[in-house]
Design a protein around this nucleic acid. Structure first.
Length: 253
DNA sequence: ATGGCTCATGATATGAGA
């Protein structure tokens, strides 16, 4: 099974890239973030013509998440149950016996800001919900744009902002792993300075000035089945790219 | 140098992203 995550920064603009990528990489599930569109604008027909179904949780202007898959996803959940939140950041579904949770984690803007506090509240609520989901679904993948670079090696050494690398954010990431989730990317040997996001400005991609903030966390029952995990930088090199690249996980059957 | 680029919006400048 191949599961991937990709913050597309507008599904409207990036739909051609997504369709090309689906055809080339044939994921069993592709988790998308930052659709930036309402559900009524979701390009379901174009995806169906490409052989994909979708569950989605859209929103105008900001946020919005989806999971695309050739096989239907069971038991969809939208938003963190019990957490009051106007922002559409969560969609979950089950493929076979694998529970997939796709999240667009809050950015946080600046350490100490109101948005930063929201990010930490959101992470705490997510963690409690994921704990409950794991009790029901031993095989679980928590994936998406975490907006957290969990370790120093996940950020370019010249990254000056605290946001995405601060102690409270990394503590929240650790709380998720302490539920029994493993960062699948680190199960395998990787190049130094492997990132999944690069600023549009400053020639950041060319200089590999980036952050690794898009993750696939797998439950214990899936660590042994994980056979590969990598960042696919190819779509970041296209015309009008997203600022994020897809991250891909292969699981043995 | 706090910019740079890209996206969306009852837009023609502004906010947000990371």
């Amino acid at each position: 099974m191949r599961i991937a995550t990709w913050n597309v920064n507008s599904l409207k603009v990036r739909l051609p890239h997504v369709l090309d990528w689906l055809a080339a990489e044939k994921p069993d599930a592709l988790c998308l973030q930052e659709l930036k569109m309402e559900d009524k604008a979701f390009p379901l027909e174009a995806l169906q013509e490409a052989g994909y179904q979708a569950i989605f949780n859209g929103q105008k202007t900001y946020n919005g998440v989806a999971i695309l898959s050739p096989q239907p996803l069971a038991d969809p959940v939208r938003d963190i149950p019990g957490f009051e939140d106007a922002q559409k950041r969560i969609i979950a579904g089950t493929l076979g016996d694998v529970r997939i949770i796709c999240g667009y984690f809050p950015n946080g803007q600046a350490v100490g800001s109101e948005k930063f506090e929201y990010k930490l509240r959101w992470l705490a609520a997510l963690t409690e919900w994921v704990r409950a989901e794991m009790a029901v679904h031993p095989k679980l993948v928590l994936t998406g744009d975490f907006n957290i670079a969990p370790e120093d090696r996940d950020a370019h050494p010249d990254w000056k902002d605290e946001i995405h690398v601060s102690a409270p954010e990394r503590e929240a990431f650790r709380a998720l792993t302490e539920l029994g989730l493993t960062d699948a990317f680190r199960l395998f040997e990787q190049e130094e300075r492997s990132f999944s996001w690069w600023d549009y400005r400053m020639g950041a991609f060319r200089r590999n000035f980036g952050l690794r903030i898009d993750h696939l966390l797998v439950s214990e029952a899936l660590t042994g089945a994980s056979t590969a995990c990598w960042v696919d930088k190819a779509p970041r090199k296209l015309e009008r790219p997203s600022d994020h690249a897809p991250v891909v996980l292969d699981l043995a059957p």
